[in-house]
Design a protein around this nucleic acid. Structure first.
Lengths: 156, 156
DNA sequence: AGTCGATTTAGAATTATTCTAATTATCACT
DNA sequence: AGTGATAATTAGAATAATTCTAAATCGACT
C-alpha cells in the first residue's frame, strides 16, 4: 500500500488551500512526492512524473517544487554538495544521512526538544525554520520497517 | 585586530597534527579562513588567497578545502541551493541564516542541549556529526559586536 | 642523483539549477 | 459559454558550482 494516495480532488484542495493554482503539473509533482516516502531529487521527480505526464519539462518540475516548498507543502533538504532533495513529510522532524548507504532517514524528535531548539536563540533572532541534519551510520538497521512510528522512517 | 593570526609554524603544526602535509597552498587557504570570522564560499576564498599567492588555482583551493574539511579543521555549511560556505570555528555550534541580509551568524547553544541532540537518535543510529541551521531574521541586531561571547558571533 | 607517491595546475567537463521568450492554460467576470 | 488579464508551462540556452583529467612539480627516501 502506498503511504499516501490522495485523489485528484484532495490534491487540488490542498493546493488551493495554499492559494496555489491547482495545475495538472503541480498536482502530479505533488502526487509523485507523496506516494513514495523517500527524498527524491528534482531529477528523480522529473523521471517519475514523466511516466505519467510525458510532456512535462524539467523547468516545470523546478517551478512546481519551488512553489510547493514556498507554500510549505514539501520541505527541501540540502546535504553537503549533493543535489537538493525533497521531503514529503510535513511534521517537524530531523534528517539522518547514512554515510554508508547514502540513504536519508526521517527522524522524529521529542516535541519538547524541538520546542527548546526554537527557544534557545539569542534575543532578536527570530527563526522561521529549523533544519537539523545528522550524519553517520546505522549499524545493522539498514532495512527499517516503513512504519512511521516513534523514532524514524523512510529511507532516501 | 584579526581574530586569529597564527604564524607559519603554528599553521604547519596544525596541519601536521592532522596527518596532512603542510603545503604552502594548504597553509594559505587555512590562514585566509582563520583570519576573518566569516563564512566565505570557495570562490571568495580563492579571491583572498590569490592576493597572497597569485599562482594558485581554483582546483587547488577546492582540493585544500576538501582536505581541511576532511580532517576537521574547518566546517562546511550548506544552506539551500546556495554555494557551499566554510566555517573556521571549531567548537560545536549552530548557524543562523538571516534571510534579510543574507548573512550567516554562528550561534552557540548550551552545551547541555547539544549533548541532548547527540543522544536522541533511535537505537542503532550513530551520528558522527550534527548540523543545525536556523533561518529567519534578526530584528535590529544587524550589527553585532564581534565578541565571541554567549549567544552569537560573526556574520557571513 | 633517482624514484615513488602525493600535490598542484590549467583547462575541459559535468551537473544542478535558473533564465528567456514564446506559447498555453486558468480564473474571474460577463 | 466567451473573453481578457494574469499566471504557468515549455524547450532550449545560459549560468555557476564543482569535479575531472592529464601533465608538471614537489618532497621524502633510497
Amino acid at each position: 500500500m502506498p503511504s499516501t494516495n490522495e485523489t485528484h480532488a484532495a490534491l487540488c484542495e490542498r493546493l488551493k488551500a495554499c492559494d496555489v493554482r491547482p495545475t495538472p503539473q503541480r498536482e502530479v509533482v505533488l502526487k509523485v512526492i507523496l506516494e513514495k516516502r523517500d527524498h527524491p531529487t528534482a531529477d528523480e521527480i522529473f523521471a517519475r512524473v514523466k511516466a505519467q505526464m510525458p510532456t512535462i519539462s524539467l523547468a516545470t518540475v523546478y517551478n512546481c517544487l519551488e512553489t510547493l516548498v514556498g507554500c510549505g507543502i514539501v520541505r527541501q533538504v540540502n546535504l553537503e554538495r549533493a543535489p537538493t532533495r525533497y521531503c514529503p513529510h510535513l511534521h517537524e522532524h530531523a534528517h539522518f544521512h547514512d554515510e554508508e548507504t547514502g540513504r536519508i532517514h526521517d527522524v522524529d524528535l521529542p516535541e519538547e526538544l524541538m520546542a527548546r531548539l526554537r527557544e534557545v536563540l539569542p534575543p532578536g533572532f527570530q527563526a522561521s525554520s529549523i533544519e537539523l541534519n545528522f550524519r553517520g551510520s546505522t549499524q545493522g538497521h539498514h532495512a527499517l520497517s516503513p512504519s512511521n512510528g516513534r523514532g524514524n522512517a523512510a529511507a532516501n
